[in-house]
Design a protein around this nucleic acid. Structure first.
Lengths: 331, 331
DNA sequence: GTTGTAGCTGAAATCGATTTCAGGTAGCGT
DNA sequence: ACGCTACCTGAAATCGATTTCAGCTACAAC
């Protein structure tokens, strides 16, 4: 691959001038023309490693998420990529698997690779930026916030979504509504379950039963096990609010296994599963604007990369309750 | 962030020695100790851009796929990432959207970024590596092959899978089996439909009808439209083999919309949809080992990066027909 | 005692861009 | 004519590692 020196030689200018042409600063017209000519003749494209080394940051954004096989994060990734790519940045995908050690590994990587910025879903409330923490490093949190709140964040209205989901179950006539949420040390989990709790309180003849609240792991099997445990209670609930999409799958699996249909058992799931649309699960789904979340996060990050120094901002996007049947044959 | 020079100064050795410690070559024990001490005191980690510039390739692998929101490719990505990460490489995710221009953009990027290698699903049979083509660049194709066949490839037994899927529909008692496959210029599409054709031929009292073969786009809507068109034929088919998972969703949508169930209409889908397991779609699913494909591709790529110069290799992984009910309540 | 070999070590070159610094030229005002 | 900007330009330093090259030491063999 050609270098800037070969271009310079061919155009009979100095490498500095070539660089200036590349970066659009003041160069006389005839030299610009000669350089462009040489560039195309040599099929030259600048070496990004050399550029990054000199500039002290690369054109790469790290996206750290807990599970790339969860369609929610896939859509987020898509949103991030669309915006990032349009701005000339590439996205490195990093699976933390929800583990602090993996997360720390990737943050370290982002630092030693001088990546332009990081968009991440902190694995837990205990997550920290480690060595990536620095005033001039761009960071945006997605879906949850890290322990120190000093970064930009893009969130959904978790509390309200939990409330609305639970509410809709009451409206459907159920009275003993349980809640299966994520790990207790994840902010998102807690907010969603508090939405549930509040909706229960608002219900006149019912106190929220604490044994109706189950902390699981945001995964299929965890959701399934949690529902199983709920069934073992003396007075089992007759409906359940599930705080993420995968646990929702687990719940539906368990119901199917027990031969129970959603016409007899209320299910509201926070977060959708694309391509499920043709099956009548009968569950109420609260739609999360995943792709938009990614897009907004990327935009905030790019602003930081460009040097914005405003105090941390938080964008809250809204979820949307889909009526129990709307997920049938839509799309 | 500390540099190798600061470490050298603190350990009272030359930068060269620090580098040697970092890379595990001959250094006396006491200096190794001093250097390690200094490294940990300064919390030093080497700047990967500088390293990449000097070494002429980075520790980054590009993964170019047509659709990150397709669970098949998501699983592939997961498989690639697991293997790559264990070897100290990161994965940059690139969505080509099946378009040659996007694909070319990312290949260019991989070249100008001196990425260690590329794993890709060529957008079409017309895809070429462009400027990334070079004897000492590592490349592995996944799922399909590019026009020149000079790279390693990881494929599935497309022809056989198409044959088996079709066969299973005949075995279930259907006799007019149609086929909905992908674009005609994609190798994978063609092989799968040829599997279908052969299975039809093998059936004594039936010639494969060419109007039963539909080329679509591997997407939901395309599958749906294709089935719709099949229904419009004089003698409509009574079963259909669908050549990928998303088109399978489209087909199931269309059937649901028409109030037809899979007990009256045969459906065999090549490629599964994770998390669908709890719904009894009644469709026969041919499982593809997506994650394994990614893992194998990454392994082949790493071998090339390490300098292997054998002639191009092709690994074929096997699909597996799941009986029509096995996808209910599994997992 | 001399020579040879093996193993360490540091100085300096190198990777390919960007950027600073120090001119050089041209045009304009007085 | 002289001085002042304003604008271009190229030489050289720079980013932070790796790697070559040559020198040094220590020890063994003859």
């Amino acid at each position: 691959m050609a270098t800037i020196y070969e271009v310079a030689a061919r155009a009979e200018v100095s490498p500095a001038t070539v660089s200036r042409v590349l970066n659009g600063t003041n160069v006389s017209e005839d030299k610009v023309a000669r350089v462009k000519q040489a560039i195309s003749e040599l099929d030259f494209s600048p070496n990004r490693m050399a550029r990054s080394l000199r500039r002290q940051h690369s054109q790469i954004i790290a996206l750290i998420i807990p599970d790339i096989e969860n369609p929610f994060f896939t859509s987020v990734a898509r949103g991030v990529e669309d915006v990032a790519q349009a701005a000339g940045y590439s996205v490195v995908l990093c699976n933390s698997d929800g583990e602090l050690s993996q997360e720390a590994y990737y943050l370290d990587l982002a630092a030693s690779d001088n990546m332009a910025g990081v968009i991440w879903t902190p694995a837990s409330a205990a997550s920290t930026l480690g060595r990536f923490h620095s005033p001039d490093r761009a960071v945006v949190a997605i879906d949850r916030r890290p322990s120190g709140r000093e970064t930009d964040a893009v969130l959904v209205d978790n509390h309200r979504a939990g409330f609305a989901a639970t509410q809709s179950l009451f409206n459907q006539g159920y009275s003993r509504v349980a809640c299966i949420t994520g790990p207790a040390d994840v902010e998102t989990s807690v907010l969603r379950s508090e939405g549930w709790r509040e909706a229960c309180r608002a219900h006149p003849d019912l106190q929220p039963r604490e044994d109706y609240l189950r902390y699981a792991d945001f995964r299929v099997d965890g959701g399934r096990a949690a529902l199983s445990a709920l069934f073992a209670l003396d007075l089992a609930p007759d409906a359940v609010f599930v705080a993420n999409n995968l646990m929702g799958v687990g719940v539906l699996q368990e119901l199917t296994a027990r031969g129970i249909t959603t016409s007899h058992y209320g299910v509201a799931i926070l977060g959708d599963l694309p391509y499920f649309s043709f099956t009548a699960t009968g569950a109420t789904v609260i739609d999360l604007p995943a792709r938009e979340i990614g897009g907004v996060a990327a935009r905030l990050l790019l602003e930081r990369i460009a040097g914005l120094t405003d105090p941390p901002r938080t964008e809250v996007l809204h979820s949307r309750v889909l009526p129990a049947q709307a997920n049938v044959i839509s799309r």
